[in-house]
Design a binder for these strands. Structure first.
Lengths: 225, 225
DNA sequence: GACAGACACCTGTTATACAGATTTCCGCAG
DNA sequence: CTGCGGAAATCTGTATAACAGGTGTCTGTC
């Protein structure tokens, strides 16, 4: 369908080059002529790719000197930044604490009646799953996502999706999420979520943000006491 | 100071052409050869400008047919910006306010000496770009991203990348990047950024978060007073 | 009027050349 | 050996010519 042009391959090739050769910010790329013969294409095409890379803020061309790395294309997490699962989990809670607390506040302020219904249904599903002592991480995710959707801000929602994907990929490797929980923890998790949902129902932004912070903080403690 | 390349003039010329000739979405631009003789430059340069315009989502090239207007650049934000973009801009500031303020706080608390250097170099580049009255959105982005990298939390960094891509995708069509800024605004933008960098240098988390909040709030006001 | 084919035009790509800027390096002076 | 100046090598920016392959249009025929 999309007939790939040579310049697209050159663009991808240079990005890959930065990653595999571990070029740091400020490092010089091979010259246009060199890249052209490396990729087996003309200098014109390489130039087109470099122009787009510069436009995207990845590289910077200095006349007479060469092209330089200005900002590294985001390498996939985990491959180039080997991080302990523990540290990664801490990191994930850091981001969640920030993003989710504010999402809860906005959700409380803006929720429509329909969105509240979606949230409450997700809450019921989560409660059932937890009380059945089964795996509940999917229900948990559905509830949290519903809260993001109630912010009526698509960028918030897509940020949640992205964050969730990243966290999932890191945690899935090491942490066994569906391990058995003591009954006390189950009741605590239900209660924490209910505090959040109650605040959203009451349209109390501060309370929702606080409850969400509390919930995430408790969750962090549950994972690594 | 701001060494303008021919391709920059071609880029601006084509944007102006779309506006003055009132080319609508789907309309065909003059051919590359025609544009070259119109602007008195070679086809090579015109092609470079067209590649960047296509990369910015303004035009689309169809092999054998020509280049076509895909999205119209608007000269002034606020007046011509469609409601969709306005809402998206508000939404983007909502997310940025949350994520970037906390990123600035963490950056201040955790920055290494090297990361501070990267941030300061990005600040220098941004200051130069702004003082030269040239386009500075890439330099701005580089600085903000450097702050996220100083959080030492890869999920934060990838969240920034994702957020930036989302915002870019929505906004880039509507914003004429090369629009002129009044000198007062330029100085204000420099000062706001410097407040953030200063706080990070001093490792004062609260001050960094506050300064970042202030900066984003001012930016929102600049865009839609 | 409908259709097929020739034709003109357009973008994508290659090749070559040169100007102007920057870096490298070598030789020379101290 | 060190410092320095300048030539040489290298690199990006720009121009020109050429061709391949796709697209739109016009024309002549039926």
């Amino acid at each position: 369908m999309h007939e790939e042009r040579l310049a697209d391959r050159a663009y991808a090739g240079i990005v890959e080059l930065i990653n595999t050769d571990d070029l740091q910010i400020g490092d010089r790329l091979p010259s246009e002529t060199r890249l052209a013969e490396m990729f087996g294409m003309s200098r014109t095409v390489v130039r087109e790719a470099l122009v787009r890379l510069a436009s995207d803020g990845f590289t910077e061309a200095r006349r007479g000197a060469g092209s330089f790395v200005k900002r590294r294309p985001s390498e996939r997490l985990g491959s180039h930044m080997p991080m302990q699962n523990l540290a990664a989990t801490m990191g994930s809670y850091e981001v969640r604490l920030v993003l989710e607390a504010e999402a809860a506040r906005l959700a409380a302020q803006r929720r429509s009646a329909e969105q509240l219904l979606v949230i409450e249904r997700a809450m019921d599903a989560l409660r059932s799953a937890l009380q059945a002592s089964g795996p509940a991480h999917v229900e948990d995710m559905v509830l949290h996502r519903a809260i993001f959707e109630a912010t009526a801000n698509p960028i918030f929602v897509s940020s949640f999706d992205h964050m969730h994907d990243e966290i999932d990929r890191i945690l899935r490797a090491g942490v066994d999420i569906s391990r058995s929980r003591p009954p006390a923890a189950i009741n605590a998790m239900i209660e924490e979520h209910e505090l959040v949902v109650d605040a959203i129902r009451a349209q109390d932004g501060d309370a929702a943000a606080l409850a969400m912070r509390w919930h995430l903080w408790q969750g962090r403690k549950r994972l690594m006491p």
